[in-house]
Amino acid sequence: MKSALSNFLFFMLVIFVSLLLCEGLLRLKNKDMKNYTIEMWRYAKEVKQRSDNPRIGHEHRPSVTATLQSVVIRTNRYGLRGKELDENYASKKRRILFLGSSGTLGWGVREEDTAVEIIGKSLGEDVAVLNAGIGNFNTSRYVELFLSKLSVLKPTDIVVNYYMKDAGLLDAGGGNWLLKHSELAVILWEIANQFKEENSHSAMLDAYHKLYQPDSRGFLEMTRALDRLAEYTHSHGIHVYFVLLPDLYDLKHYKYGFAHDIMKKQAEIRNFDTRDLLPFFQGENDVKKFWVMPTDRHPNSLAQNIMAQAILEMLQKPVEKQ
């Protein structure tokens, strides 16, 4: 009995020491900022905070700077990526607000290389272009963020950078102490998720087909959010541009065209100016040239530039009343 207890205690000690060693080695290893999961975790810890509005979930902290995935991300006092608003912001001819998730934020891309920044520079001093993109966001959240917190910025135009994942439902998350403080816990959580979730492309395709069914909860929430946005913008004379971002995976045999078609119809119903960016990328064999890292397919500076040019063309066209 004594021996069994001593063996048990010994192996508990072995496991404890091993996990401690793993934590230490992972912290050293992740200093290279190449682990996407850990960098996103650090983003959540260092740049985000829980929102006082439960429908937003989390939002950017105001006025913080962090280096994530070797790129500096800074926020202004509104939690928007970029510098503080100009003093003469209110008197600008156009004030364009970009809503979206990590692709809009410019995850893994230097601030000056993001589509929003390129567009801002191209449109000149008379136009203010603001980036309200937040990583791990969906349509319900960015519309709510705008309506409850960013409408004070009084934009003249809103660009919704829609990615097909934006119809998905998001957990509140962030409550686990271990997940907040341990890189090992994050990795173990990721391992567990990989076992739990089906990550094959056919499974992903199935999941998106289900998500875009008219009666799916995610789809209904997303359309409701778009209704709220349309109602507000139409009543306030704000012009909405609806931009469809493609999934930068298999651009040769793109499988998610159905989601683009559905969303184009949704945008047209609400009188949004729509542009699908898929044709600007489609047919490319070497998709990795658009990725920020071989393990992270967020749009890199090359892809952001293509996005910028396509959106810019749309923004420079004469505006029809919506």
Binding site: V14, I15, S18, L19, C22, N35, L188
Partner: peptide
């Protein structure tokens, strides 16, 4: 056995982070 167990734990976790 303790040493081997420790080695396997490290291999699984660090191996996973290398993809």
């Amino acid at each position: 056995i303790g040493g081997l167990a420790m080695a396997w734990i490290l291999v699984i976790i660090l191996g996973f982070t290398s993809g």
